[in-house]
Design a protein around this nucleic acid. Structure first.
Lengths: 325, 325
DNA sequence: TTGTAGGCGTTATCAT
DNA sequence: ATGATAACGCCTACAA
C-alpha cells in the first residue's frame, strides 16, 4: 500500500490517521488518499489493537436478549458507541443460556470495558476484580468507590402508579410481584409498600409470581379469589405480569377495567398490543443504554462519571379505571 | 510469561495451543500450565488475529433487534458460534437506526463472515462484492452460484393456516398483509393466494398494513366493514398484525373468535399474552440462527453448505373457531 | 517534509 | 524435546 503510493508506511499512517498537520505536504497527502481509495485500502483492526493496546469495543452484559427492554438498552448503547468509533458486543449472562466459552477469559484482551445491565449482585464475579472498567445499569445504588451507575427512578415510577390508582378511588390493591432477586424488582416491591403507607392507604396484599404470563395469570387468580373483599386493582411489577393478570381476571369472568384495574411497568410494545391497552410506566430503555455507554467512555478517558438517575413517566391507558360503585 | 515459566515462547504456544503431543515433555507442559494459571495469563486475541489472519468472529445483520424474532435468531447463532470458539457481533442494518460507522469498511479485517437475516435484496450491496463469506437467512431462495441459504418453509406454514381455517368451515377469509418488501412477506402473500386457489376456496380480499398494531387495527376495520358479506376470518401475516386485528374486531363490537377468527404467524411470546391466545405458526427462530452459523462455519472451512429449509408448525389456540352459524 | 526502525503478542518454520 | 527467529500490519519516536 505504501509502496503503491510511492511513499513510506509512516507517511501513510500519518495521513490516514488524520494528524499530518504541517508534517506532510498537501500534494503527498492527496496522493496517499488517492492510492487508498484506488486500492480499497482498509486498516487492519487487529494490528491496530495490538499496537495501541485498546480495541475500541465494549461488552454489554444482559440477562436475556429476547426481552425487549434489553434489546432497547443495546440499541441506545450501540448508537452512542458508533458515534464514538466504538463497537458493542453482547453477552447474555450465564443466568440465561450460557455460551460455552468464558467471556471474561480472553475478553480482557478483546474489550476495553463492560456495561452490566440489571444483573444480580453476584453475577459479576470475575469482572470487578479483573481490573476491567465497569459501569452498572439499573443495578444497586451508587456505592462509594464502586463502579459508576446509571439508574432508573423506580421508586418515583411506582409512586406515580400508586397515586394514579388511589386517585381513581381504589383502596384494595393487590400487588403481583416478580419473584426475581434483582435490584430493580426489589426496589419496586419496597416502593409499593412505602408509597401506600405514605399515602395512608391500606397495605397491598402481595402475591409473588415468576416472570411469565402463565405464572402471573395464576397469581392473579389467587389474588382475586383470596378470602375477604376482592381487590379492585392489580398492581403488577411489569407488563408481562400485567398481561397474565388480565387473563386471570377474565378467567374468573371479571372485566378489565370495569371489575378490576390492572397496571404494568416497562411500557413494552406488548402494552399497546393488549386490549384494553395497559396503563403502565415508561422506561427510557435506550436512554439507559446511551448514558451507560457515555459513562464507560468517560471512565475510559479518565474522566469522572457522575451517577445518573433517569426519570420515569406514567402512561395512563385503558386498563385502569375507577372501581365499580 | 514464557520467561516466568522458564521456557521459550514457542513452547508456551505449543502447550497452550493444545498441539504438543510428542513434542513437549509432560513435565515441561505441566510447568507451563502452572505458570499460566499462576499469572492469570490470557492470550491476546488481537495478536492472534494478526498472526493467523482470521478473527473467529461473525457478523449477524438484522433489520431490527427489538423484534423478538431476531433476538432469537441471534441467540441460536451465538450458541453454535460459542461451541466453535466463535463470537458474533450484531449489526442492525441501516434500514433501522443506522450506526454512524460503516460496518463494512474495516469490518472486512475484523470479521470472518456475514450472516444476513431477512434482508431486502438490495440492502446488502457492499458485502457480496467484498469477497466476504456470506450466508443468507430467510431470504430469497437458493440461486445457483449465490450464497448458501437457510430458509423457512413459509409456503407450507401458510398452507397449514389456510387448511385450518377451511377445516373450521370458513369461506370468507380476509388477508391482512404486511406492507414490507422482503422475501418472507412476499412468500406469505403469494402462498395465501395459491393455497386458497388450490383448495378451490374463494380468493381472499387483501388489505395491506404497515408492521404495527395500530396500522393493523385500521386495516382490520377496513376489512370487516368493506361492502359485501363480512369476512369470518382474518388471516394475518404476523402476530403483531394479528394483535391489531383483534383490537380492530373489538372496536366494531365483534368478538374473537365467536364473530371473527384471527390467525397470526411467528408465534412470538405476544401470541400467548393475548386473550384469547393466538392461533399462529411457530417459526424455529433459534434453529435458523443455528443453521445459519453452521452454514457459515462450513463455508469458512471450505466445505459445501447445502441449502436448508426448516419446517413450520401450526399452533392452534383460542383465536380461531368455526364461523357463526 | 519524509524515511527508517523497533516493537506490540502470537504462531509457524527451522535449527539445535 | 526445545529454542531462536521471522512475520503478521500498524503506530511512533527519531533520524535524515
Amino acid at each position: 500500500m505504501a509502496h503503491a503510493a510511492g511513499v513510506s508506511q509512516a507517511t501513510v499512517s500519518l495521513v490516514l490517521g488524520g494528524k499530518w498537520r504541517g508534517r506532510v505536504s498537501e500534494r503527498t497527502a492527496q496522493a496517499v488518499r488517492d492510492a487508498a481509495a484506488r486500492l480499497g485500502y482498509r486498516p487492519n483492526l487487529a494490528a491496530r489493537s495490538l499496537r495501541l493496546g485498546v480495541t475500541r469495543t465494549a461488552m454489554l452484559v444482559v440477562p436475556a436478549l429476547t426481552h425487549e427492554y434489553f434489546a432497547r438498552v443495546y440499541t441506545g448503547a450501540a448508537r452512542v458507541a458508533a458515534e464514538n468509533g466504538f463497537g458493542v458486543v453482547l453477552y447474555p449472562s450465564p443466568a440465561g443460556i450460557g455460551p460455552a466459552r468464558d467471556p471474561f477469559g480472553s475478553a480482557r484482551t478483546a474489550i476495553d470495558g463492560v456495561i452490566a445491565s440489571s444483573m444480580a449482585a453476584d453475577a459479576l464475579t470475575g469482572i470487578g476484580d479483573g481490573g476491567l472498567p465497569l459501569v452498572m445499569l439499573d443495578s444497586d445504588p451508587d456505592t462509594p468507590g464502586g463502579p459508576p451507575t446509571v439508574n432508573l427512578a423506580v421508586t418515583d415510577g411506582i409512586r406515580q402508579v400508586v397515586r394514579h390508582l388511589l386517585a381513581l378511588g381504589h383502596r384494595r390493591i393487590a400487588h403481583i410481584a416478580a419473584d426475581v432477586d434483582t435490584w430493580t424488582f426489589r426496589a419496586r416491591t419496597q416502593a409499593v409498600t412505602a408509597e401506600l403507607a405514605a399515602a395512608g392507604a391500606p397495605a397491598a396484599v402481595r402475591h409473588r409470581s415468576a416472570l411469565g404470563v402463565d405464572a402471573a395469570r395464576e397469581a392473579a387468580v389467587r389474588a382475586l379469589t383470596a378470602p375477604g373483599p376482592r381487590p379492585t386493582a392489580l398492581l403488577c411489577d411489569d407488563d408481562i405480569l400485567a398481561a397474565g393478570a388480565c387473563k386471570g381476571a377474565r378467567t374468573l369472568g371479571l372485566s378489565v377495567p370495569a371489575d378490576v384495574s390492572v397496571t404494568g411497568f416497562d411500557d413494552l410494545s406488548l402494552a399497546r398490543a393488549l386490549d384494553p391497552e395497559l396503563t403502565t410506566v415508561r422506561l427510557p430503555a435506550e436512554g439507559i443504554g446511551e448514558h451507560g455507554m457515555r459513562a464507560l467512555l468517560a471512565v475510559l478517558a479518565g474522566r469522572p462519571a457522575p451517577a445518573v438517575e433517569l426519570p420515569l413517566t406514567l402512561v395512563p391507558r385503558g386498563s385502569s379505571a375507577p372501581p365499580a360503585a
